[in-house]
Design a protein around this nucleic acid. Structure first.
Length: 507
RNA sequence: GCCGCCAUCGUCUAGCCUGGUCUAGGACACUGCCCUUUCACGGCAGGAACACCAGUUCGAAUCUGGUUGGCGGUACCA
């Protein structure tokens, strides 16, 4: 973007207005979320207003619960809006389904001025036409069959109840506009034909409605996905015909799946909701999608929302599509997981335990076995979860990672053997460890003291002590170190587990 | 098919506008080593890219043209 061009919107504080306009026909998509984020960042970076508009003109596919999901996902991500549903402003209502009178007014105006006309062609006729043009290697477009129908015939058709759509008279000219990200872009409007803007007078189509709303809501900058690039010249024609000012446009690169196709359901999770359910943190998702198609000039990779708002510049948005790399998201998620305090982590992770039957009890701070043999308080749970943080990619990983703190998983006696150890040797070592630990009092049961005392038992290969101990306590092939586990478990549970392990070696 | 957009490591990208400082930098991933009872963390090291062909220029990842490839759009969806 040229500096002169950039100067046009810098300093627009107060009058700069952007919008995010989702249609509630599904859960908020990760790609839409990025578009929403970039709009939000642009508004915050330039002191503008951020408008949320619900595009629910498609009555069959729009659903209220999807709208609710979009709003909830926004809140969860930390994106607020200045005007929109739940936040009325000067230019409401903010649902297109509530603005139909407005659209009708403009359709009538266009019809009166003969800038648009009624088209009575049937779908079948249109299809035949476009097939024919395609076979000749031409761009399929409307041929203008109804563009100059005699007034008499129009009236007869209307009186006869013949269905019609409304078409815009497309000027025969080349149209160039400047995209904030891509620079000058030209289209030949003669190739487009007269586009449909409404089904009848009551049922406006998306391209028309968007144009009207952007004007009525005084949107100064339209930042949207690249798939809308070819819609832009059509909207500009509409704006010219209606005498509207033309907003600035910016088209964001697509988010691609690893196979470089458009990210879709078959590639896995696509909605914010699914990522939330899988245990991703909003901070990680924001950081991740911000870097999909945008990058600051330096090497910094970690950003909070506020930092992004300070650094964001539309001039640094990428032109090429960006592949969605889950591994990178996982890494970021782990990073933000590690920033949580133990109590924050517990609050975040506990809901994920409810989904796993055997560990459900961990969710209950005051849980005790039916025989009263064990219980877990909040502090215990927090310490257990904190220990798993560096191994967890997602919140959903915690139950598996920390399960042994609440219930020793079943394991084979063979797992207790370090390298070539024989069962008798394992039993012997476990017994020695047992005697050593028994002599340590409850207050001294900390990882440092434990490590120091047990070190007296080490032979040439300390694995012969540490491995059986660790497996006895965790029942797992992979886990944190034995002393870290032991401190959290506490003396009683530790001795009990070692005893169980010794019994296992005798079976 | 037609129209439009795009093109630096496997991936996200810095550099490109304002040619030389680029034997192309960072991060994720990968490989090896160190730490280490295991896994993970951490530390160190390594492999890995300017799509291709012309042109301009003393000099091109950077500028121009073309080729190839990818993506998007081609609805009475949004």
């Amino acid at each position: 973007m040229s500096p002169a061009y950039q100067a046009k919107f810098e300093g627009m504080n107060g009058t700069l207005r952007v919008r995010f306009a989702p249609s509630p026909t599904g859960l908020l998509h990760i790609g839409s979320a990025r578009t929403a984020l970039f709009n939000w960042l642009f508004a915050r970076a330039h002191g503008g207003s951020y408008i949320l508009r619900i595009e629910d003109t498609d009555k069959e596919r729009s659903r209220k619960d999807y709208e609710q999901n979009i709003l909830e996902s926004f809140k969860w991500l930390g994106l607020d809006w200045d005007e929109g549903p739940e936040k009325q402003g000067l230019y409401g209502p903010y649902r297109q389904s509530e603005r139909t009178a407005l659209y009708k007014k403009y359709i009538e105006q266009l019809l009166d001025q003969d800038k648009a006309y009624r088209c009575f062609c049937t779908k079948e006729e249109l299809e035949a036409q476009s097939r024919e043009m395609e076979s000749r290697g031409e761009a399929p477009r409307y041929r203008g069959t109804c563009s100059h129908l005699p007034q008499k015939q129009i009236e007869t058709n209307i009186a006869g109840g013949k269905p019609f759509i409304i078409r815009l008279r497309m000027p025969n000219k080349k149209l160039t506009f400047e995209d904030m990200i891509r620079g000058k872009i030209s289209f030949d409007m003669a190739l487009t034909g007269d586009i449909a803007i409404a089904k009848g007078e009551e049922d406006p189509l998306w391209i028309f409605v968007v144009t009207i709303d952007d004007y009525e809501m005084k949107i100064s900058h339209v930042i949207r996905a690249e798939e809308h690039l070819s819609n832009t010249p059509k909207q500009i024609v509409l704006q010219e015909l209606l005498g509207f000012p033309i907003p600035f446009y910016a088209h964001l690169p697509m988010i691609l799946a690893p196979d470089r196709a458009k990210l879709s359901k078959r590639h896995g999770a696509t909605s914010i909701q699914e990522y939330k359910d899988a245990g991703y943190l909003p901070e990680a998702i924001i950081n991740f999608i911000a870097l999909l198609g945008w990058h600051p000039s330096g090497d910094k990779e970690l950003f909070t929302l506020d930092e992004l708002a300070k650094e964001f510049s539309i001039a640094r948005v990428q032109k090429a599509g960006a592949v969605f790399n889950v591994k990178r998201l996982d890494w970021l998620n782990n990073h933000y997981l590690r920033k949580k305090t133990p109590s924050e982590l517990a609050a975040l992770a506990l809901p994920f335990y409810e989904k796993t039957e055997t560990l459900r009890r961990a969710a209950d701070e005051t849980y005790a076995n039916s025989d009263g043999s064990d219980s877990f308080d909040a502090a215990y749970v927090e310490k257990a979860l904190a220990l798993a943080t560096e191994r967890a990619q997602k919140l959903a990983d915690f139950p598996e990672l920390t399960g042994f703190f609440f219930l020793v998983p079943p394991y084979e006696a063979k797992l207790l053997q370090w390298r070539a150890m024989q069962p008798e040797h394992v039993r012997e070592q476990l017994s020695r460890i047992m005697r050593t630990l028994e002599s340590i009092d409850n207050q001294s049961f900390t990882q440092d003291i434990l490590a120091e005392r047990v070190s007296g038992l080490y032979g040439a290969d300390r694995g012969e002590i540490l491995w059986p101990l660790r497996v006895a306590l965790s029942g797992k092939q992979f886990s944190p170190g034995p002393f870290e586990i032991a401190e959290i478990l506490g003396k009683d549970r530790v001795l009990k587990r070692i005893k169980q392990a010794i019994q296992k070696t005798m079976q």
